[in-house]
């Protein structure tokens, strides 16, 4: 009787899950792929074609925007990792009790605030009449007002900021499970700070590092607000290009092709990252 009851329960639970995944995730993406592969020949008339993908490879603007987005996202991911790691170490290993939970909570705070508000904050800080510019003039480091907005550095600052949390949390979680004894043992056997980091800490923290990097990379790649608001007109972000095709030019076929390309690119890079670090997707995402 157990197995029959289980069967029924499984089917009942499978229903909503399949409905959700099929209708909102799988089919829309399949449809997007199909739309990207058709060409409009007249009113309501389409034929299968790869013209939109060809446009991507022949139009240097598209191609360059695409590469730029990927490279900047990888850079943002590396920067986030490098900045977050010591902080995560500090929280996981150097402090205890209340201080620790307080610091951990403090890392989560920006996550509770809308991305729009955070980006807006950086605009106020970095713009010509902004706080940083004012501070530089006040200290005498700059003679006139300084425009720090609308360049790649500003975009990078914003990208790193936007995804910091998603790096710190998995790092703290994995570093926390690293037994201090292992580090002590490594020291006892003659290791020093650098070798312990390389041979013990980083291999141990690899699942956390990989999962943090994947999420941060995806967030950067798919980011729209930061490049648009902090990068200004010349920001050239690929999501911006997709938005332009869809909403401004109403060229859905081209936009869908870009969407597919962005997905393929991100999957490719994530897959490469997983292969290189020998991690599995389901484990990393847990």
């Amino acid at each position: 009787m157990k197995s029959d009851g289980l069967r029924l329960g499984t089917w009942l639970l499978l229903g909503p899950a399949l409905l959700w995944l099929l209708l909102l995730i799988v089919l829309p993406h399949v449809d997007m792929l199909l739309v990207s592969l058709r060409q409009r020949t007249g009113f309501g008339q389409y034929q299968t074609s790869t013209v939109h993908y060809l446009a991507f490879f022949t139009e240097p603007l598209y191609w360059r925007t695409f590469m730029r987005t990927a490279v900047m996202s990888i850079l943002a991911t590396i920067l986030t990792l490098v900045i977050a790691f010591p902080v995560a170490w500090y929280i996981a290993k150097m402090v205890r009790g209340r201080v620790r939970s307080l610091l951990f909570m403090a890392c989560l705070v920006p996550f509770w605030v809308s991305e729009l508000v955070r980006t807006y904050g950086w605009m106020i800080l970095l713009r010509e009449t902004g706080v940083v510019s004012g501070f530089l003039q006040w200290t005498g480091l700059a003679s006139g007002s300084v425009e720090m907005l609308y360049n790649d550095v500003a975009v990078m600052v914003g990208l790193v900021y936007a995804s910091m949390l998603f790096m710190v949390v998995p790092l703290v979680t994995t570093l926390d499970s690293l037994d201090d004894c292992l580090i002590e043992a490594a020291y006892d056997l003659g290791g020093n700070g650098w070798s312990v980091l390389r041979e013990i800490v980083i291999p141990f923290a690899m699942p956390g590092i990989v999962s943090g990097c994947i999420v941060v990379f995806m967030l950067s790649l798919g980011n729209y607000l930061t490049p648009v608001l902090l990068g200004g007109k010349g920001s050239m972000w690929f999501t911006e290009q997709i938005f332009t095709q869809f909403i401004v030019r109403f060229n859905w076929e081209q936009g869908a092709a870009f969407g597919v390309l962005l997905l393929v690119l991100s999957s490719l890079i994530v897959w490469l990252g997983l292969k290189l670090t020998r991690q599995s997707f389901t484990e990393v995402m847990r």
Partner: peptide, 21 residues
Amino acid sequence: VPPNKRPLNMVFQHLALFPMM
């Protein structure tokens, strides 16, 4: 003398074998 420079080694209570190696 820091622990990594002492001519003495230790077997830890829970052994502390490195799981990633």
